[in-house]
């Protein structure tokens, strides 16, 4: 597991962020009071099932939440040149300098995230030229350097190829090259390996952690795959139904999960110690409720196997620090038996 010296000064700090969509069905809070922080050069894994608000959190950071949605309250502060600036409410023109310049983004679908009509060299060079005043030749040289950095074989030839000539793993490398082209201090990777097959996944993850160490870039890794988190992350935040339910260092979380949802997620992994060969996989019954139908009280209570009525369905638990650095949003946290 990669380690890097912990830094006190957060690079990105999100405080009580609320992002809601206003649809005909009413207000839908996809992100409901999320607080997070990513330290310089560290990797934070943001984990949760589909539909729990991970991607909306990422889009909120870049100010790219699509139209019926908007950031309603909270703050997102990014340290740029040591000076923290507020991203919520920042004018579009300045946000554009942040996007790509200070915060890079890697998307889930490498097959469709590259523009089909331009060569990959053009696309990486464009990412450079959007933020730096360089000539075409310099941008191309930088693109070549980036392609080499993300370990694309034969970059001198590849630079003039079109996305459809590359495989999924190669395209994801190009996406990484684009995201890192302007040396951002933070990279948001939204499920960067979900669309790739397992062997390529491992290569991409290794590339990401290697680049992080080499360039000192912090990474916010969004994933539903705890295996990916175990391999790459320093810290983990588990999200459920628009809220953070547990937050700790990766070592602590895997060794000592405290929230029933986290316990369930860990138990549901195929490689989980509890489900040995020949045994059925454990699952968490039910699915993440859609934001317009969030239950009262603790949002996980209808699926929780440690349910203690009436408190759990009546009262939303607070995020409490149980042991130093380990936060949990559960009434029963610390009193649960760690076995199930």
């Amino acid at each position: 597991m990669p380690t890097s010296p912990p830094s006190d000064e957060p690079l990105l700090s999100i405080d009580r962020l609320v992002t809601a969509f206003h649809t005909q069905a009413g207000r839908v809070p996809a992100v409901d009071g999320v607080s997070l922080s990513v330290a310089k050069g560290r990797t934070l894994g943001l984990v949760g099932e589909s539909g729990c608000g991970k991607s909306v959190t990422a889009m909120s950071i870049l100010g790219l939440v699509a139209s019926p949605g908007r950031i309603e309250s909270g703050s997102i502060r990014l340290a740029t040149d040591g000076e923290p600036v507020e991203l919520v409410g920042m004018p579009e023109r300045r946000l554009r300098q942040i996007r790509g310049g200070k915060v890079g983004m890697i998307f889930q679908e490498p097959m469709t995230s590259l523009n089909p009509v331009f060569t990959i060299g053009d696309q990486v060079a464009e990412a450079v030229r959007l933020h730096r005043r360089v000539s075409r030749a310099e941008a191309r040289a930088r693109a070549l350097e980036m392609l080499r950095l993300v370990r694309i074989g034969d970059p001198e030839q590849r630079i003039d190829e079109y996305p459809h000539q590359l495989s999924g793993g190669m395209r994801q490398r190009v996406m990484i090259a684009m995201a890192l082209a302007c040396e951002p201090s933070l990279v948001i990777a939204d499920e960067p390996t979900t669309a790739l097959d397992v062997t390529i996944q491992a290569q991409i993850l290794e590339l990401l952690s290697d680049l992080r160490q080499r360039l000192g870039t912090a990474i916010l890794l969004i994933t539903h795959d705890l295996g990916v988190v175990a391999e790459t992350c320093d810290d983990v935040a588990v999200m459920y139904a628009g809220k953070i339910v547990e937050q700790a260092s990766a070592d602590e979380l895997f060794a000592n999960p405290l929230h029933p949802y986290t316990i369930g997620l860990l138990a549901a992994r195929p490689e989980s110690a509890r489900s040995g060969a020949g045994q059925r996989l454990t699952t968490i019954p039910g699915a993440v409720p859609p934001p317009q139908h969030f239950p009262s009280g603790c949002r996980f209570h209808p699926r929780c196997s440690y349910l203690k009525e009436p408190r759990c369905s009546a009262e939303m638990p607070e995020l409490r620090e149980i042991t130093p650095g380990h936060f949990v949003r559960c009434h029963e946290a610390g009193q649960l038996e760690a076995s199930c």
Partner: peptide, 25 residues
């Protein structure tokens, strides 16, 4: 489309996205 989202995330403005990223497609 995803590549337009990627272009926005890279910091491209609306005119640039319309003329350079969408129009050729």
């Amino acid at each position: 489309s995803e590549f337009v989202m990627a272009a926005r995330a890279a910091g491209a403005g609306p005119l640039r996205i319309m003329a350079r990223h969408i129009l050729p497609n």
